[in-house]
Structures are given as C-alpha cells and as structure tokens.
Design a protein around this nucleic acid. Sequence first.
DNA 1: CTGAAAGCGCTAACAT
DNA 2: ATGTTAGCGCTTTCAG
Lengths: 338, 338
Amino acid sequence: MDRKIATIQDVARAAGVSAATVSRTLSRPAVVAEATREAVLSAIAQTGYRVNATASNLRRQRTGTVIVLLPNIANPFFSQILAGLSSILTPARYGMLIADTKSGPDPQDRLADYLASGQADGLVVLDGTISPATLEMPSRPPAVAVCEWTQSAMPSVRVENDRGAALAVAHLAELGHRRIGHVAGPPANVLTRARLEGYRRALEMHGLPVRDDWVLEGDFTMASGAAAAEVWLAMAERPTALFLSSDEMAVGFIGAVQRAGFRVPRDVSIVGFDNIEIAQHLSPPLTTIRQPRTRLGIRAAEILLSMIESGTRDERSEVIEVELILRGSSGPPPAGTR
Amino acid sequence: MDRKIATIQDVARAAGVSAATVSRTLSRPAVVAEATREAVLSAIAQTGYRVNATASNLRRQRTGTVIVLLPNIANPFFSQILAGLSSILTPARYGMLIADTKSGPDPQDRLADYLASGQADGLVVLDGTISPATLEMPSRPPAVAVCEWTQSAMPSVRVENDRGAALAVAHLAELGHRRIGHVAGPPANVLTRARLEGYRRALEMHGLPVRDDWVLEGDFTMASGAAAAEVWLAMAERPTALFLSSDEMAVGFIGAVQRAGFRVPRDVSIVGFDNIEIAQHLSPPLTTIRQPRTRLGIRAAEILLSMIESGTRDERSEVIEVELILRGSSGPPPAGTR
DNA sequence: CTGAAAGCGCTAACAT
DNA sequence: ATGTTAGCGCTTTCAG
C-alpha cells in the first residue's frame, strides 16, 4: 500500500501523452484538446497524481511560500492577523512560513538566510522592532509591514494609532475627566510612539494637563498592566482615568485595582486599545478602541500577493480605521475631582 | 545592486573546485582537505552564496517543512503550542507551515494535497476533529497528534484530561460543595469526552450526585461560557460550584454572573482548565488546572523530529501532567447549601 | 580527496 | 494541439 507516489511521467504514460501535455492540462486546460484533457484527467485520478511542489517551484523559480516575521508567536495578539493572512494566502495556494524572530539561535542571521536564499516569494513583517537594515538586502522579495515603518519605503498596512488614542482621550474628556493618564507600550515600539503622540495631542486640544508622571511604561502585557496599577495606586495625585495602549494591559490593570478594593469605573475609568475578545466579557466590560486585526492581515496579504504577481514593488500603503467601542469601564469621574 | 544570487557553480568557479566539493564542504566538512575547505568557505563568503533550499530538497527528496494542522489560527489557545513547536523546529532548521483546517475552499482536499504531494517531512495535528481517515493515506509522512487520538495508531502528546477534571472536582468537594456542575466543550471533541468522564467519575468517587441537567454544553469560547451562565442563572436548583472545561469559558461565565450581580466565589465557585495567562489577572483570579501548552508543543516537535530523522514510525505516546492551581475563584459553598 | 555525470520532477521554449 | 528538449540548482554515486 505504500507504493511510490505517481510522477507526471506515470500520468503521461497512463494517458498515452507526453509529460508536457499533462502539465499543460493542469495549468492551462483550455489549450489542450477536449479528448486529451479527459484522458489526462482520468489518468490523474487513477494514479492519484499530485504535482510535486518542490520540483515545480524549482523549475519556476519560485517557492509558493510567504514568510511571516513576528516577534513572538505565543502572543495571541498576532493570531488574528495570522488568521487574516491565512484566509487570503491559503486559497491563493501560498503557504505561510511562520518565523519567530526572537526564538532560536541567531535570529537575525536566520532571517537573512531566509531572505537571501529565495526561500520565499514574499514577506510579511509584523515585528516593528526589526532593523530595517536587515531587510534591505539586494534581492529581497516583495514585503509588506503590518505596522508603522517610517524608516523604509516598504509598503505597510496599519491602523490609525494616533487617532485611536485621540478618540480614547476625547471620550474621557467628554465624560468630565481632567486627570487622564496613559500606560504606554515599550518605548522602542512604533505603535507606542504613535499612540503616545495621539494621547498628548488630544490632551492639549482639550486643554488638559500633560504630565509625564501620568505616563507609565508598559510592554503591552497583562503583567505590565498590573504593574502599572501598583504605580497608580501609590500615586499621591492619581489620574481619574487612564488610556492604556493595549487591552491586555487594561485587563491586568483592572484586575489589580479591583483586587485592591477599587471599583471601575466608579473610582477610575479605563479605556483600552485593540478590542480583544475578552474585552466584552469582563466585568465591567472594557471600553476600547477597536482595531480590526483580521482585516489588517487580509489587506496585507492582498497587497503582498498583488506585488508578487505583478512583479512590481510600489504598492501604496494603507491605513485602516479604528473605532471607539463604548462599554462599561468608562464613566464620569468621582465626585469632587473636576 | 540587484545582481542575481550566487549558485553553487559560481562558488565552485570562484574557489577553483567543482560543485561537488562545495556541496561536500557544506554537508561534511571533515571529508575535504583543509586548504580546499578554506578556499571554498572564502568563496562562499565572497559570493554571498546560500544554498537554494528548493533545489536541495528536490534532490534529497525532502522538504525541510513540517505542517501544523490546526482548526483555527485565530484561537490563542494554540499559539502557545505553536511557540513550543517553533522553539524546537526552528533551531533544527525545519520550517513550520501553518494550515488552518477550517479556512479556504475544500480544506479536506487541500489537506490531502499537502500530505500526498510530499510537501512536508512531518505533520503535527492539533485538530482533534480531523477525520483519521483523511490522514491514513498510503504515503503520509510521520505525524504526531497533540490531543487524544484513540482511533488511530498515531503517536500523541496529550495531557491528563481526566485526572485534571478529577482534581477540579475533588478540590470543590473538599471545600464542601455537594452540587457541582460542569460546562463541557463541544461533544465531538475528544478533550470534552475525557474531561467529562473525569468529572463524572470524581463525583461518584466522592458520593456526589451526577445530574445531567448540571452538565452544560459549551464550545470552549468565552461566548459559550457567558451563555452557560445564563442557563445557570435560570436554574431552579443551581450548582454551587462549576468546573468548566476551558478557562475561556470560565472567563465568560464569571463576567456574566458578575454583571448579573452575583459574586465569585461567595455565590458560586469556579474552576477552569488550561491556566491561560489571564487567569491570574482576573478579579477574583481563577482557580484552574494548569496545562503546560508550550511543553506540549516542545514534546510533540521532539517526537516528530526523532521520527523523521530515524525514519521509524513507532514512537511512543506521551502524557503530560496537569496540576491544580489554587486561586481566588473557588471557596466554600454559600451557607445552608451543604 | 576531488571531479564528472546523472538525475530529483517539473515546465517552458521551440518544433512539428 | 502536442511532443521534444533543455534545464532549474543541487547532491550523490562512481571513478580516479
């Protein structure tokens, strides 16, 4: 039962035609005669033939694979983007090779390897901290970044990070908050900077105080949100509302202040960023900025495919809208704090 | 700057040797003369040569790729397992091709394609619902399942689902609960059955009532946990404690009952399963059964690699221990319910 | 220790 | 409309 898998030659023999005709039947059926086509197709069915992708790729000088560079597979944030990518790439018969840029030995080196060795027809960069220099190799395949990427000319798909932050602040200001803090992401991250900028600008626009001691540093994780909560709890003069640069941090923050006996939003209002699934299931449910991550992946994949297939490299970047989702974690400030 | 990438011939020419020698230098350096080796290596450095994996694979009749079959990339549950897989496969220079068995057209067909076309040297099955028949092709590569997989002889790595469930029930029973309910996963799922079985057996062992109306059906998602909460809220005679088959469902459940004005664990005790990251950040933090998902991935990858490299197929299955993590969501039953 | 030669399985000119 | 031919870039006998 373990007989060798059929090759195109076996099919050709079975159908009484040449290998070239079999190949044509598969790639451009219209160009072969009806009778031949039927003979070939039935021979394929009989033999159980499948094209050997490796051979096909070698011949066609392509790989049928797209590499996705991400900083950390274990971060569920990326899984939705992957789902979006997959939903486009899979039907287009491209495989997704996931490369964790942080794991394994010499990640930078491995990366360079991938790029140089023509292991991939395209590249999706989800890691905002990869040095652009690494990617600027002579013969790199077309690439799309899914985040801001100012340093390079690579097309990108990103969300309105600054406007999202501004929406969050505006919402809190309208509720009457005048002391609005922020928990930012890691300083090196481009998202962090965009959101922090949006936060600052919105405060100014609303004539609210911009205080550096109300900007806490996190790293997008729940643990860092919980840590920020400890800092907040220890503050002499606490913000009555916080905008956090990720929902995960908001979850950590809310959990920590609740366990310390504070109530949300009675004692402090919280707005997150992302609209991860859990946001709606918290108690209180989390007010947040929705970031359509699946769509990010879809658009990135579409842009990449069009670059690959057209052979061009000047696709335009794209910015995807964000939206404020009003839920229960934000409310008016405590009495006497206006 | 976009000059073509160097081939092994270019290197051979630059080093004044044959292509065969270059190949040998790379694969078995010990077998070439010191001087030759140096010449070749410097030629490689000069030309920036990288082996073309496609050609190499075609020649060696392998792919350097492992396919990971999962039901839904967007489910963060799998991302930790992927991280574990990646941490082993990447250093071993295998790529991971992620195949979402639910997305795209004709998933079953695509799957068969992958398997038959020798697109992969190995297979990791994370989807407990894939029909074993699909995988039983004549020339399928070695495979490992990361879940129970009773129907087939495929080696598997799984956790002690039944014992985990029993631990949860025992813990609740020891707290004094006598009315212990369960929110199960989808009925077709193998995990569901194992945990349900463990739950039932533990109830019997503790002399507690086994009531079918206290077993609710979920699908592992937060939404289904929230839905289960609605059912629980509407019950005439409510369990005072519930063991839920996933932390995600527990999150949904807790959120929903809290929003309905109930308190956890004062009004109802909750034990989840998985120990996802958020469990410790909830308020109250979630008592749960820890399932070491990264380790699952690591062991699956190790077993698979050893099968691939040894060419054998009879690696033994492996069961990984679970552990009860005591946190705040479980406590004594409300007064008067013993 | 090294080189020559023969393909892996496929596709795309080029013929017919 | 179909067949012939010539590789894609690499590895591996087999000789020397």
